[in-house]
Design a protein around this nucleic acid. Sequence first.
DNA 1: ATGATATGCGAACAAGCGTTCTATGTCAAG
DNA 2: CTTGACATAGAACGCTTGTTCGCATATCAT
Lengths: 215, 215
Amino acid sequence: MAKANGQLTEPQQKILTFITNYVEQNNVPPTIREIQYGTGISSTSMVSYHLKALERAQLLNRYERRSRGLVINEPHRVLLSDVVAVPLMGVIGASEPVPTPDADALAGAENSVQIARGLVGAAEGLYALEVKGNSMIDALINDGDIVIMRRDQEVRNGDLAAVFLTDRNESTLKRVYREGKRLKLKPENPTMKPFYVDARYAQIQGRVVCVIRKT
Amino acid sequence: MAKANGQLTEPQQKILTFITNYVEQNNVPPTIREIQYGTGISSTSMVSYHLKALERAQLLNRYERRSRGLVINEPHRVLLSDVVAVPLMGVIGASEPVPTPDADALAGAENSVQIARGLVGAAEGLYALEVKGNSMIDALINDGDIVIMRRDQEVRNGDLAAVFLTDRNESTLKRVYREGKRLKLKPENPTMKPFYVDARYAQIQGRVVCVIRKT
DNA sequence: ATGATATGCGAACAAGCGTTCTATGTCAAG
DNA sequence: CTTGACATAGAACGCTTGTTCGCATATCAT
């Protein structure tokens, strides 16, 4: 049974997370026996026993005598199950600056990429770019990958960011460190060496929040 | 049965909307008999009959012999921007086989990764692995990346897959092509050359569906 | 010791539930 | 009219699954 202080016993906790995962994966709550095997509890009666306790603790609801008649009480299932639609603003290659859209452009984007909120945080200022070509190999980014960027945000040392190098007229994704008048640009690929550019010739255009590769 | 033109017969339509409503209200799919009474169909065999037709028409999936083993197929819910929770099954390095969990292990996973359904499709058979170390560099995958895998699926030529090489006792992610008795393994990194292994010493352990890098 | 309470195990029961088989009906094609 | 594909009923069968009960063990205050 749930302890007096509101804590859950270990098997109860196990059951709860098992049910949650099971529902997420199967769209159907588990049976008592599935819980039994899934959690290593040794008998159906024990599962039943713990379920009663969990019901008393208001952590789940049960429909009597119904197979799979379990419903996890919502407070847990939370906000996490949310999707952010990130507008797909265009293409990033090596030879042109990264688009940094304003609010209007953002709103007008036709395509968007669906991202679970847990991966990227707040939706504000996010936009997505499709990578064309192999020029981002040293950032471990391949042709066709999707890069999720966040704009209007301070780039801190060590952030992976899109940098446009005005003297070479190309853009690149690197980890950025300010070192006086220079910028140290470090490839994401640990087998490659960092290099330095004059800060005057570098425009930081956005921070990389996430990279996604569909195969 | 579904008519040749793709239209649904009236009882089929009824069943479909009944299931949808039922799930919304109860968080659990209905049983055959509940469908029977709910739609006024006069026998369980008729319900079963129509369900088979709907399954053939790809409008729902069924788990055999499982009570309430119905899942409405997603095309509808897709628009609702749904999230798939992919269980995080462990770590992939170079020096051990990739975990290929069975159903029980999947259900028991404690952590999960939230992915927008649009990125990965159906949730069945998906699991996630965290990459440790730099040994996957030639697959453009870095320490800390998350790899979404799908199990129990035929790997086709050109698929990016996890391969365990028994003679070297290491696992790797490569594009796989069958060439007679050999397997051609092509690094995802276009600057690197493919190589060949004896098919007997290679176990294909799963298909890579998606790679995610949070920064 | 003693008994109350929480916990654990296994088996058995009964209701729940998917499946299947037989019989009947409908209707268009041959 | 016959045939065969499709649709419908009803019932029986057997696996699934929630529930319950008897019994064993452990902890702990009385």
